[in-house]
């Protein structure tokens, strides 16, 4: 059952296409990675799917229900406590049981013991989990995360993937952007590869092509495509 559909999405900044007719579907419980070099259009795509940016043309459908959004940086109010952050977004999302859902969410993101600590006093990993909790507070059918693991140490990263894995297991569609080949290989059911705003690949990471492991295969893939199609090099 699809939870997110992007159809023919286009975004231009001064004639330069940041996103060039991109379409894809995310199923419930599926974990989709968005990969591609710097300036490929990953953030543009995610924020468009999230409804932060409006597409120049194309449409976004949410057949499964609400969407949760976790921006690139840990987007939390540093001066508010863990509970206050969650409760504020529960209110803004018009959740019925504000206190209860904040409490349940703190259990889920394993921050119940830091409920009354300010976000600024948390570790980077904890803050990222809080940020995810704020994106999850309205029980979305699909969760979008922009480079969720970028600032985390390996242990915190592992903990993050445990959380995201359990979310996918519970039927939530997960879409995340990443620069880590290991994460695509280890945690994504599917990978979407963007370059210069164009969708170059949409399929299982293992099927991308020749290479001893995903990272090499990914590089080979990009080189081959850039030789064929003149994408104009690094779009930045």
């Amino acid at each position: 059952m699809p939870v997110l559909e992007g159809r023919d999405l286009v975004k231009r900044y001064d004639e330069r296409a940041a996103l060039d007719h991109v379409s894809f579907v995310v199923e419930a419980g599926e974990s989709v990675a968005i990969a591609g070099p710097n300036g490929a259009g990953k953030t543009t795509l995610l924020s468009m799917l999230a409804g932060v940016t409006t597409p120049d043309s194309g449409s976004v459908e949410l057949p499964g229900g609400k969407l949760g959004w976790v921006p690139q940086k840990a987007a939390v109010y540093q001066k508010l406590t863990v509970r206050e952050n969650l409760e504020l977004f529960a209110r803004l999302e018009k959740v019925d049981d504000v206190f209860g859902s904040a409490t349940r969410m703190m259990d889920r993101i394993e921050l119940a013991h830091r409920a009354s600590d300010r976000a600024e006093d948390l570790s980077g990993g904890m803050r990222q989990r809080l940020s995810i909790g704020m994106g999850l507070i309205a029980d979305p059918a699909v969760l979008l995360l922009d480079e969720p693991s970028a600032a985390l140490d390996p242990l915190q990263r592992e903990r993050l993937w445990e959380l995201l894995g359990s979310l996918a297991d519970s039927g939530i569609g997960i879409v995340f952007s990443t620069h880590s080949a290991g994460e695509v290989e280890g945690h994504a059911d599917r990978v979407i590869i963007l370059d210069g705003g164009k969708l170059l690949y949409d399929g299982a990471p293992a099927d991308i092509g020749p290479g001893a492991h995903f990272e090499l295969a990914f590089i080979n893939f990009l080189r081959a495509r850039r030789a064929h199609v003149n994408v104009g090099g690094d779009a930045e």
Binding site: A50, V52, P71, K73, A75, V76
Partner: peptide, 12 residues
């Protein structure tokens, strides 16, 4: 802290 992108998603 990119809070604006959070709020503008239909929340406010």
């Amino acid at each position: 802290d990119q809070m604006l992108t959070r709020l503008l998603r239909g929340l406010a």
